[in-house]
C-alpha cells in the first residue's frame, strides 16, 4: 500500500524525535535528514502539534520535542491525521460498484483495508524503534 507524503513525513519526524524525547529538533534539521523541504514539513509538524504528538519549543535553538506516549501512539493514529486509508468517498459508489461484480470486488477491497488498518493500528512508535534496532543488528528476533 502507499501512504501520502505527509503521512510518511509525519511518521519519520515522530520517530526521529522519539529516539530521544529530551532532544529538540528544528524543522530544518528533520527536513535535512529526510531530504524534504522545510515548507512542506512545517505544515506536517503543525498538524502533529495540534494533535499533541509534538510540542514546539520557542526561542534560540527552538524546535520540536516528542510529546506523545511512544507505547501508545500507533502508525494509524498518525496516518489518520493526514488521510483516510479506506476507500475514497464515492470511489465505491458508482454504477460499476453497484453491480454484482462491483460488490464482490468491494468485499475483497474491504478485506485489504481491514488488514491495513489492523497492521497500522497495532504498530506503535516504540515498536518502530525496536524494529529499527533489530534491523540495525541484522536480526529479526525480539
Amino acid at each position: 500500500m502507499r501512504l501520502q507524503v505527509a503521512s510518511r513525513l509525519a511518521i519519520f519526524a515522530l520517530i526521529e524525535l522519539a529516539r530521544d524525547p529530551e532532544q529538540k529538533l528544528s524543522v530544518g534539521e528533520i527536513g535535512d535528514k529526510f531530504g524534504v523541504s522545510s515548507h512542506h514539513l512545517a505544515k506536517v509538524m503543525h498538524a502533529l502539534g495540534r494533535a499533541g504528538l509534538v510540542r514546539s519549543v520557542r526561542g534560540v535553538g527552538g524546535g520540536y520535542r516528542f510529546a506523545g506516549n511512544v507505547r501508545r501512539v500507533t502508525l494509524l493514529d498518525v496516518v489518520n491525521l493526514f488521510e483516510d486509508i479506506s476507500a475514497v468517498e464515492g470511489e465505491r459508489s458508482g454504477t460499476a460498484e453497484a453491480t454484482d461484480a462491483g460488490q464482490a470486488l468491494g468485499v475483497v477491497l474491504d478485506e485489504i483495508d481491514d488488514i491495513a488498518r489492523a497492521t497500522l493500528g497495532s504498530i506503535t512508535i516504540a515498536t518502530m524503534l525496536k524494529l529499527m534496532d533489530r534491523q540495525k543488528s541484522g536480526g529479526t528476533k525480539s
Binding site: 515498536t127 525496536k130 533489530r134
Partner: peptide
Amino acid sequence: HLLMAFFRSEG
C-alpha cells in the same frame, strides 16, 4: 489492536 500491539512490541 491492543493485544496485537503487544505481540508486535515483542517482535
